[in-house]
Measured scan of single mutants.
Amino acid sequence: MATVKFKYKGEEKEVDISKIKKVWRVGKMISFTWDEGGGKTGRGAVSEKDAPKELLQMLEKQ
């Protein structure tokens, strides 16, 4: 499965696309949330040019 790689608060992170729940556009950035388990929700953002095609497809479906 595809993953999204991004930096959050200076830390490199990687999230499996299948865990992503919500995707939206903020200017030229793609923001998203995912389920971290245990009732926690993670947040992240990646530039439109660095976003994997699967993430962009999720954005178009909404």
Results as ranks from 00 to 15, higher is better:
K53A: 04
K13D: 01
G44R: 01
E12N: 06
S31P: 04
E36T: 11
D16I: 10
W24S: 03
Q57H: 07
E36L: 07
V46A: 09
K9F: 09
G42A: 11
E54T: 07
E60W: 03
E14P: 00
W24G: 03
V4F: 03
G27S: 11
K28W: 08
V4Q: 00
D35Q: 12
G39L: 15
M58L: 12
K28V: 08
I30G: 00
M58T: 04
F32N: 00
I30F: 12
K53C: 15
S31V: 10
P52Q: 03
S18R: 07
K5E: 01
F32S: 01
T41S: 09
Q62K: 07
T41Y: 13
D35M: 11
D50R: 09
Q62F: 04
K5L: 02
E11K: 11
E11W: 03
G39A: 12
D35A: 09
G42C: 15
G37D: 11
G37R: 06
Y8C: 13
S18D: 13
K9P: 01
F32K: 00
G39M: 13
L55D: 00
W24N: 02
T41H: 13
T3Y: 05
M1S: 13
K53Q: 12
S47M: 11
D35G: 04
L55K: 00
V46R: 01
Q57E: 07
K61H: 14
M58V: 08
V15C: 04
G39N: 12
G27F: 06
T3E: 01
V4T: 01
K5W: 02
A2D: 06
F6L: 04
K19W: 12
K21G: 15
K28Y: 15
G27K: 09
G44T: 07
G10C: 14
I17N: 01
Y8E: 04
R25C: 15
K53F: 12
E14A: 05
M58Q: 05
K7C: 15
Y8T: 03
K5P: 01
K61V: 13
G44S: 08
K61W: 09
G39W: 08
G38H: 08
T41N: 09
S18G: 13
A51C: 14
W24D: 03
I17Y: 01
W34S: 01
K49W: 08
K22Q: 15
M58Y: 07
R43Y: 10
V15P: 00
E11I: 10
A51E: 01
Q57A: 09
G39C: 15
V15I: 14
R43M: 09
A45Q: 10
K49L: 10
E12I: 12
G27C: 15
P52D: 03
D50P: 02
T33H: 12
K7H: 07
K5N: 02
M29R: 13
G39E: 14
I20P: 00
V15N: 00
A51M: 08
S18Y: 10
L59H: 05
V46I: 10
K28M: 08
A2E: 05
M58G: 04
K40C: 15
E12W: 14
K49Q: 09
A2P: 11
T3F: 08
E48S: 04
E54C: 12
E11C: 15
G37M: 10
K5H: 03
M58K: 08
A45S: 10
K22N: 12
G37E: 11
E54A: 06
K7T: 10
K5M: 02
E54F: 05
K5Q: 03
G38D: 11
Q62S: 12
M58P: 02
E54W: 07
G44E: 02
K28R: 07
E48I: 05
K9M: 12
A2N: 09
K7N: 08
E11H: 07
G27V: 06
E11V: 13
K28C: 15
K40R: 13
S31Y: 06
K19C: 14
M29F: 11
E48N: 08
G42I: 06
K53W: 14
F6K: 00
S18T: 07
I17A: 03
P52N: 05
E60G: 09
S31D: 10
W24P: 00
V15R: 01
R25T: 08
V23C: 10
D35E: 05
A45K: 04
K5F: 02
A45G: 13
G37Q: 10
Y8H: 08
E36R: 07
K21W: 15
R25W: 07
M58W: 05
S18H: 09
G10Y: 02
W34T: 01
V23G: 03
I17M: 06
L56G: 05
E12M: 15
K49D: 12
K22A: 15
I20C: 05
V46G: 01
S31M: 07
G39K: 05
E54L: 06
E48V: 07
K21R: 14
K9W: 05
V26G: 06
L56T: 13
G38P: 07
K5A: 02
V4E: 00
A2F: 04
W34H: 05
S47F: 14
K61D: 12
S47T: 09
G42D: 13
A51I: 07
M29Q: 12
K7M: 13
K13W: 05
E11S: 04
K40S: 11
V23E: 00
L59P: 02
G44D: 01
Q62I: 10
S31L: 05
P52L: 04
D35L: 11
G39V: 11
E48D: 13
K19A: 07
